[in-house]
Design a protein around this nucleic acid. Sequence first.
DNA 1: GTCAAAGCGCCTTTTACGTCA
DNA 2: ATTGACGTAAAAGGCGCTTTG
Length: 319
Amino acid sequence: MTVEKEDLGLSLSLSFPQNRTSSVLQLNLMPSSSSSPSAPFVNQTPSWIDSFPSLDRNTDACRGEVRSFLRGIDVNRLPSTAADGEEDAGVSSPISTVSSVSGKRSERDQGNGDDNENEMERSCSRGISDEEDGDAARKKLRLSKDQSAVLEESFKEHNTLNPKQKLALAKRLGLRPRQVEVWFQNRRARTKLKQTEVDCEFLKRCCENLTEENRRLQKEVQELRALKLSPQFYMQMTPPTTLTMCPSCERVAAPPPPSSSSSPLQVDRPRPHQMGHVHARPVPVNPVNLWAASGPSHTFTGRSMIPSLDRNNLVGPRA
DNA sequence: GTCAAAGCGCCTTTTACGTCA
DNA sequence: ATTGACGTAAAAGGCGCTTTG
C-alpha cells in the first residue's frame, strides 16, 4: 500500500529488509531532490521511527502495514501543485519587499548597523511602486519563485544560517537579512509541523494495530483457557515451551530437546543456538515490551510535539 | 563563580494576501 | 463584479538557552 500525501508534500520511505542491522524506518525530512549524505539535519537528528525496527519482526501489529505505510513521503518537498499553481497564477512579484519598520527584530538586525544592510534595505526599495513605497505600514509580498527556489536550495544545505551566510543570501536575493532569517525560521517550523503530522499518523496506525493485536491475543488466551479445562487437552499436550529471544542478535532460540535433563518449563539456561554463540540471558519474546524498549525517540529539534513520545518519558529499558 | 548583555532559535500570534464558493 | 470565509506565508513579539566579557 502506498500513501501519497501530495497535499502535504510529504515523502516517507519505510524499508524493512530481512537483515536486522539495516532494518529501519526512514523518514526523509529533506527535500526530495536531496538524497545526498550531506543532508544536515536528517543526519543530525534521525527520526524516532528509526528507533523501533522491532515492529516488523515481532508484532503482527505493525508488520505489514507499517512497512508500506507512508512510503515515499517527504516532508520537505514543496507541494508541487500549490507551488506551481501559485507561480502559474503570477502571484509572486519579481522583487518583493517588506517595509516593516518596528519590532525588536528590526532593531536587532539594524543594530548590526553595517552599511551592507542599509544598502540592502535601499536596494529592496527600488523595485516597488510609489504607492507601496509610501506606505509605512507593514506590507507583505510573497517571495518570488526564484527567491523561494534559492532559499529552498540553501535550506537543503543548512537548515540554519550563520550571520555570514544570512548576509550573503540576503544580498544575493535582494532581501533584508531579517527576511532571510524569518524565512528560515518559518521553513523550519513548516518542516517540523509536517514531520509531526507524519509521526502522528504513524503512531496512530501503530496504535490501531497494537490494539488489534491485543484483541487477538486476548481471544487466544480465552481459547487456551477453555482448552485447559477439558481433560483431553492434557492428553494431547506436548511439553510446554517458552520462546526465548537472544538479546544480542534478537533471534528466537530453538526450544530445548525433549531429552533435556532440565524441566521442560526451564529453557533459560544459556546455550548456543543456530548462530553458534552463547547467550547469557535469553529474554521472553513480548511484542509490547519490544515496543516499549525500542520506543520512539523524536525528530528535528529533539523536542517532541507529543510529550508522551519523548524518549525520556518512555518506560522500559532500551535494547 | 556570578551577572548582564547579546545573539539565536522556537513558539505563538498577528497580519497581509490569494483563492474560492 | 463583489464579498466573506478560509488557508497560507511573512512577520512580530515573547521566552528560554547559550555564549561572552
